[in-house]
Design a binder for these strands. Sequence first.
DNA 1: AATTTAAATCGTAATCATTATTATTTTTTG
DNA 2: CAAAAAATAATAATGATTACGATTTAAATT
Lengths: 136, 136
Amino acid sequence: MNVETALQRLKEKGYKRTKQRERIVEIFVQQDQYIAAKDILKAIQEDFPGVSYDTIYRNLYLLTEEEILETTELGGEKHFRLGCETHGHHHHFICTTCGKTKSIEFCPMNSINENLKGYDVENHKFEIYGKCPQCH
Amino acid sequence: MNVETALQRLKEKGYKRTKQRERIVEIFVQQDQYIAAKDILKAIQEDFPGVSYDTIYRNLYLLTEEEILETTELGGEKHFRLGCETHGHHHHFICTTCGKTKSIEFCPMNSINENLKGYDVENHKFEIYGKCPQCH
DNA sequence: AATTTAAATCGTAATCATTATTATTTTTTG
DNA sequence: CAAAAAATAATAATGATTACGATTTAAATT
């Protein structure tokens, strides 16, 4: 996913192209890892000193809604990263030190043979936490 | 796990038996589901009107540390439940409406054949979210 | 290009979960 | 009972997230 594709997808839905929104997407394209809202704010303030959390969160949630970003909760904070739809549905190993991830192609939902009759499955989460080779 | 066993385990580690702590464990034994800190507070205030969040969280974390409780993050809030060590390591289906859970005996870590050489696995999470038959 | 309008932003305040602090109280042990 | 350690109460502080009114901006329209 690149910046243009993402903004194009938003445009089709009637969302406007703003410099701030553009920059937010850019940051995610540059740093291919989970990032906390406060770090997005910090990064974007170099170009737009006045941005508010309102703008950050509104965009992060919009981008997640439009499936441009993925989200997970790390240490009590929501983190976001570019959704890597390039290789389909998958999960992540997440480094608890640097936040970098490694894709895990295996999805446990495919292997599950529990009886979930009567249960309406909406979502699932499979994440492995630990130290990546660099942080080990 | 019953109240006595839990408090006994704490005693062995040198932790004291207090009425508040006792009541907290009791609540978890009675309600076998994930509960948010604020709901524990609400429940315990019926007996101890003056309890503070400090007491709640200190005990929740202590009980988690001592592996009497398990924890997960739901909607931006930490939730706790009695650890069901009776049937070993397992995962959960969690109802997004009532919070009740169904145990999933399958653990994806047993089935994983990804190459995680060089990665130090500390933890993992596999949770399925949706509606239970009652809330469906 | 100017006008219009809906969307987005800014600046700031409010909310909510969680953590910290200090004085006081309680449990346990000798 | 007395002493020491642990736990609690009351309250304040922190930090993430959400909300809001006024203003600005992007994009569509004339």
